[in-house]
Amino acid sequence: MYSQGLIGADGRSDETPEFLAAFQARVDAEEKIEPNDDMPEGYRRTLVRQIGQHAHSEIVGMLPEGNWITRAPSLRRKAALLAKVQDEGGHGLYLYSAAETLGVTREQMTEELLDGRAKYSSIFNYPTLSWADIGTIGWLVDGAAIMNQIPLCRCSYGPYARAMIRVCKEESFHQRQGYEIVMKLAQGTPEQKAMAQDALNRWWWPSIMMFGPHDADSQHSDQSMAWKIKRFTNDELRQKFIDATVPQAEYLGLTLPDPDLKWNEEKGGYDHGPINWDEFWSVVKGHGPMARDRIKARRKAWDDGAWVREAALAHAEKRKVRREAAPLAAE
C-alpha cells in the first residue's frame, strides 16, 4: 500500500518548448505514454521517483504487518495476513518492473532505499503494537492508499496505470478485510474494543498525513497534475478519505481522535482539526519511531541474502558453460 504526496521529485526539464508542447498535447488527449516514447526528462525522473517510492513502500510495508504474522490470534487470520503481506510484496515486484521500463534497475532502486536516498511512505515508520493495528492498518492505511491509487489507474504513464489496476483490486480486498478485523474487535469483549480504539487513536493522524502536505505547501503538485501523473490534489484526496471514513467509524462505535471533526453543510464534507506537520516532516525526514529499525531490517535481509543471490548467479553461469560445452564434447 502506498499513498503519499510524492516527496522530493525534480520535475524540471530543459527540452525545447515545441517538444514539451507536443508531449503535453498527447497527455491532454489522454494518450498513454509508453516506455519507448519520447518524454521530457523531468517526466521520466518524476515517475522513476514516484514509482520507486511506491515500490519501496510496498516492501517496507511488509515489516509492520509481518510483525504480527507469528501472533495472529486464529488460523484463519494468520493465513489471511500472510496472504496480504505476500500481496504487498507482489505489488512491490510489479512496481519495480514498471519503474524498470524507465531505465533504472531494481538493484539500483534497492540500494537507494538502503542508503536512505529513496523515500517510502512515512506511515510505515510507526510501530504495530497490538493485533488491532493489523485491522486498523487495513482499514485506514489501505483505505487511504486506495483513494490515492484509483486515480493512478488513469495515470498518463501506461505501465504504471496498468499495474495500478490489479493493485487496486487487491488493496480494496485488504481494506475490507482490515475493516472486518476491526469490526470483530469492536463487537467483541471490552478488552478487544479498547484495543481497537487504542489502535485508531494511534493510526488516525498518521493516516490522514499520508496524503501529504496541504496543497498550498505542496511543491510538486502542479507539474504532476499537468502531466496527469496525478489527478487530484493532496487536500482533495484527504477530504474524500475523511468523508468516507467518518461514517465507518460511527458504525463501529469507535471515536476518531479529533475533537474538531464536524460536518460542514456548506462544503458537503467534514472539517478536521489542525494536522501536526512538524511530526509529519520529522517522520518524512527519517526520524519516525521505527525508521532506523525498518531500514536495518531491510539491510539485514539484503546482506544476509547476498550469498544466496551470488550462488544463483554462479549456478546459472555454470549451467550456461556446461550447455555450451555439451555439443563440443559430443563431437
Partner: peptide
C-alpha cells in the same frame, strides 16, 4: 512464515509465504 519480509530476494518473499500458506491450509 517467519521469513516473510526478510527473504534473500523479493521473489522468495513471495514464494515462501506461498509455501507457508499451503501447509497452514
Amino acid at each position: 512464515s517467519e521469513w516473510c519480509g526478510h527473504a534473500p530476494m523479493l521473489e522468495e518473499d513471495l514464494a515462501m509465504p506461498n509455501m507457508a500458506l499451503d501447509v497452514i491450509g
